[in-house]
C-alpha cells in the first residue's frame, strides 16, 4: 500500500494526467523525429555530393588549371579566388561590424539612433543575395569603375556579412558580465580602456565564432559574386582581377552543361571547405572555453 502510494506520487503531480503523459510521449517522439530528419537531410546532401564528387578530389584536380572551359583540368584558380575573396571580405567586414557592435553596446543608450543602426543592419540581413549582387554590379563595378574584380566582389560580400557579424558581436559583447566593467572602472579605467582591455577580450571567442560563421556563408555565396567578381578562369594577380569562385564555377559547369562530373568535384571541394571552416569555429570556441574553465 505504502509502496503504491509512493509510486503514484513519483509519477508526478498530474495523477489524473494520463492523457497529458501520453501527449508528452507523443511530443517527445515528434521532436526526436524532427531532429533525426534534420540530421538525415544533412547527411543525405553531403553524402550524395561526396559520393559523386569525392573521387575527383585528386591533387591534379585541386592544383591543376582548368582546360576547355573547365571540362577538363583542375580548379586551382577557383580555389585561390574563393580564399582571397573570402579573406578580403572578412578584412573589410570584421572591423566595421565589430566597431558597430561596440558602438551599439557600449557607447549609446537605446535611442532613435541606435534603433536606426540596428534596424538598418537587420534589414540588410533580409535582402536576397541577388539584390546585393545587382547593387554591387551597378555601384562598385560600373559606377566606381572597379570592374569585375576581387575588390568589387569582396566589398559586396562584406556588406552581406555585416549583419551577421554585427549581431553575433553585439550578443557576445552584451554577454560580458557588468561586474567586469564595474571592476575595470574601479581600477580607474576609462570607458575606452574598459572596452579594449576587458570587454573585448572577454567577448572575443563569441566574436571570432560569429566572424568565422559569416565567412562560411561568404564562401558559398554565388549570386552576389557572379555579378561582382565575374567568372574569369585565370589565376588572379591583383585585387583588380576577376576571379571565378568555387560556387560560381560549379554553377557555370552545371548550368551550361559543360561537365557534371567536374561540377560535383567542385561541389565536394566547396562542401569540404565549408565544413572545415565550421569546424574551425567550433574548435576556437572549444579551445577558449576549455582554457577559461581553468586549464591550470
Amino acid at each position: 500500500m505504502a509502496r503504491d502510494a509512493g509510486r503514484g506520487e513519483s509519477h508526478g503531480r498530474g495523477a489524473p494526467g494520463r492523457p497529458k503523459k501520453r501527449s508528452g510521449v507523443l511530443g517527445v517522439a515528434l521532436v526526436r523525429a524532427s531532429a533525426a530528419l534534420a540530421v538525415a537531410i544533412l547527411v543525405f546532401i553531403v553524402g550524395y555530393i561526396m559520393l559523386r564528387g569525392a573521387r575527383l578530389m585528386t591533387p591534379r584536380f585541386l592544383f591543376g588549371s582548368p582546360e576547355k572551359m573547365g571540362r577538363e583540368g583542375g580548379i586551382f584558380p577557383s580555389i585561390v579566388g574563393t580564399v582571397v575573396l573570402t579573406l578580403s571580405s572578412v578584412a573589410v567586414a570584421a572591423p566595421l561590424g565589430i566597431g558597430t557592435a561596440i558602438f551599439l553596446t557600449e557607447y549609446t543608450r537605446e535611442g532613435l539612433f541606435s534603433r536606426i543602426v540596428r534596424f538598418g543592419t537587420e534589414s540588410l540581413a533580409g535582402i536576397p543575395s541577388i539584390i546585393f549582387g545587382l547593387f554591387g554590379f551597378l555601384f562598385f563595378v560600373i559606377r566606381l569603375g572597379m570592374g569585375w574584380s576581387i575588390l568589387s566582389g569582396s566589398l559586396t560580400l562584406a556588406a552581406m556579412m555585416l549583419p551577421t557579424i554585427v549581431r553575433t558581436s553585439e550578443e557576445a559583447l552584451r554577454s560580458v558580465p557588468d561586474i567586469y566593467k564595474e571592476t575595470a572602472y574601479a581600477l580607474g579605467a576609462s570607458r575606452w580602456q574598459t572596452v579594449t582591455s576587458v570587454v573585448l577580450p572577454a567577448a572575443m571567442p563569441g566574436i571570432i565564432t560569429g566572424v568565422i560563421l559569416a565567412m562560411g556563408r561568404a564562401i558559398g555565396e554565388t549570386a552576389a559574386v557572379i555579378f561582382t567578381a565575374g567568372s574569369s578562369l585565370r589565376l588572379p594577380k591583383s585585387i583588380f582581377d576577376s576571379v571565378r569562385t568555387l560556387p560560381v564555377h560549379f554553377y557555370i559547369l552545371a548550368r551550361e552543361g559543360i561537365s557534371f562530373e567536374n561540377a560535383y568535384g567542385t561541389a565536394a571541394v566547396l562542401i569540404t571547405a565549408v565544413l572545415l571552416v565550421n569546424l574551425a569555429a567550433y574548435y576556437v570556441l572549444y579551445r577558449v572555453s576549455k582554457r577559461r574553465a581553468g586549464g591550470i
Binding site: I179, Y180, E182, T183, A184, Y185, A186, L187, G188, A189, S190, Q193, S197, V198, P201, A202, R292
Partner: peptide, 29 residues
C-alpha cells in the same frame, strides 16, 4: 582617485585573462 582607493567586490571578479594580465591591467590603466 580609484588608483588611490582600491576596491574588491562580493564575488571574485577575475577577468578571463592570464593571472599576470589580471594584475597588470591595473597599472597599465
Amino acid at each position: 582617485l580609484r588608483s588611490r582607493i582600491g576596491m574588491v567586490f562580493q564575488r571574485p571578479v577575475a577577468f578571463p585573462l592570464s593571472i599576470y594580465d589580471n594584475v597588470a591591467c591595473a597599472p597599465r590603466v
